[in-house]
Simulated scan of single mutants.
Amino acid sequence: MVDSRESREGDSIRRRRECLSCARRFTSYERVEEVPLVILKKDGRREPFDRQKVMKGLLLACQKRPVSLARIEQLVGDLQARLMERPDREIRSRELGELIMDELKGLDQVAYVRFASVYRDFKDLPDFVKALEGLMHKEAATGRAAPVSTSIPAPPSAPPAPEPSKSAKPVPQALFPGEAEAPVLRTRKK
């Protein structure tokens, strides 16, 4: 090999070679042939793996959560690398969703529940509660976090009002905001 350069498009490597027996020079091009990842949808359709589609779903699930964009990008990159290492290039959408949910479970539990609610297409509240209970039981079994109470806490009680002193006169209450005191009704004598 005499010279090696990347092509202008960046999709191949151009190599100048020389034959050892006749000294003739020639050019060869090397291209990486990748078989694309294909997602097999529930309805039987096949579509190419779209990194941006996965990224968009994760961004929606992690919206207003303390998860950095760099961490989401790393998660998508790791997921794509795991899929590329597989011998089969066709992945069921259900399997892909489960892989994403496994990653989200360790990253942020609220994002996990958000993603699961869309991915598993919860129809009503019992489906949602069942998923939350499953998450809480798994955490309790692994000892990672204490189970969260699903009961609604009682509102804090108001502090007791001070008792009026016996020597003070009662202060008339205002009827409307901004009024100093209640209006006095006067009657005329006839």
Score class of each variant (00 low, 15 high):
M1H: 10
D3G: 05
S4E: 15
R5A: 13
R5E: 14
S7N: 14
R8I: 04
S12R: 15
I13T: 15
R17Q: 12
R17I: 14
C19P: 14
L20P: 15
S21Y: 14
C22R: 11
C22P: 12
R31D: 08
V32S: 01
V32Y: 04
V32R: 10
E34S: 00
V35Y: 04
V35C: 06
V38T: 14
V38H: 14
I39D: 05
L40R: 14
L40Q: 09
L40N: 13
K41N: 10
M55Q: 13
G57A: 07
L59H: 11
A61T: 05
P66Q: 11
V67Q: 10
S68A: 06
R71N: 08
G77N: 13
D78G: 08
E85R: 13
P87H: 08
I91N: 09
S93N: 10
R94E: 15
E95N: 09
L96I: 05
E103M: 12
G106T: 05
L107F: 02
D108W: 06
Q109D: 12
A111R: 11
A111V: 00
V113T: 13
F115G: 09
A116V: 07
V118Y: 07
D121T: 12
D121Q: 15
D121H: 14
K123Y: 09
K130T: 06
A131E: 15
E133N: 09
L135Q: 08
H137I: 06
H137A: 07
K138S: 08
T142M: 02
S149L: 02
S149G: 04
S151F: 02
P156M: 04
P160E: 02
A161E: 06
P162A: 06
P164V: 03
S165I: 01
A174H: 00
G178V: 03
A180I: 08
A180G: 09
E181S: 10
P183Q: 01
P183F: 00
R186F: 04
K189R: 07
K190R: 08
